[in-house]
Computed example of a mutant assay.
Amino acid sequence: MKRRDFVKTAIAGSAIACTNSLFAAEKKSQKQPDLVAIHGGSAVQMFEKGIAEMGGMSRFVKKGQTVVLKPNIAWDRTPDFGANTDPDLVAAVVKACLAAGAKKVLCFDHTCHAADDCYKHSGTAEAVEKAGGEMVSGNAHSMFIDQDIPRGVSLKKAKVHKLAAEADVFINMPILKHHGGTKITCAMKNYMGCILDRQFWHRNDLPQCIADFSSYQKTSLTIVDAYHVMLEHGPQGKDPKFAPVVKYQVISTDIVAADAAAVQIFATVAKQYGMGKPYTLDEIPYIGLAEKLGVGTADLSKLNVKRISVA
């Protein structure tokens, strides 16, 4: 099956098409899934169902390990804008990691707006701390260390946040949304919050730099928040009306596959709501570039994919 043929079912009425019509690449297998696509329910309900299907958080977190979460907290926006990762989802992941035996769970982002405002108004800081995790500065220059990017084409070196470089377990938690420069921002682009100099990427072939850094960053799990999907005016958002509640989530061990699935979700939602554009994989070049570097696969038919609907 061609990777661009995931959406098989026409969308009718006002209801969002369920994951069964989106991810036709599901294989029947006794193996633990490489990717779980969930639809329906709250962000927390989808995570709980999805991570159980993935084999539980203990598949990824062992007793005594330090876990680092990298949600998108870049913008001084409340959750209804769909600009930042759902704070309740982040809290649920913190709790799951601690229950699996994590020594501590740390959370950060190199924000675009003022860090204190982003951490507070997104709801992330309060949610993480109540769940037993710890917020860490993502903007302090002292937190960044020089790292080589061995497989990099445009990006050969970068100042990388210590938590991203040194984590026992790194969990990437992007939100799916529109982006003015790259059309869509999701899992791999969320890595821009791990580095100090974003402008270098913008000046030196942004899609290639995104792919390059993805070849460096070791990530145990990617959890795509698509409860709200901002269809226009990304990445920071203009009004909550451009970020409808659509109730999707993707959990995967393959970050390229997670982004490929996210493109299909975005296209489906854009068609349904008549906002944004139903982009194809070819229109999001960093996905193919990362695949070329061996980061993962955008062809879901090669993976063990599981679909779940939450009543």
Rank of each mutant, 00 (worst) to 15 (best):
K8Y: 07
G13W: 02
G13Q: 07
A15D: 08
A25M: 00
E26I: 03
K27L: 03
S29D: 14
K31I: 03
G40I: 09
G41A: 04
V44R: 07
Q45T: 10
E48S: 07
M57H: 13
S58E: 15
F81E: 02
N84E: 02
V90W: 11
V94F: 07
C97V: 12
T111R: 05
A114R: 13
A115I: 01
D117K: 15
K120F: 02
V128K: 09
A131D: 02
G132N: 13
G132Y: 11
E134Q: 15
E134G: 02
V136R: 15
S142I: 09
S142F: 01
M143K: 14
D146H: 09
Q147V: 14
D148C: 01
P150A: 06
P150D: 10
G152C: 01
V153R: 13
S154C: 14
L155A: 13
K159P: 00
H161G: 07
K162C: 02
L163K: 05
A164Q: 01
A164H: 07
E166K: 13
E166G: 07
D168L: 08
V169N: 02
P174Q: 05
P174W: 04
L176I: 11
G180S: 12
I195C: 09
D197M: 06
D197Y: 04
L206I: 13
S214R: 01
Y216K: 14
D225T: 05
H228L: 01
P235K: 09
P240W: 12
P244D: 05
V250N: 12
S252H: 11
V263T: 04
Q272Y: 00
P278R: 11
Y286C: 08
K306P: 02
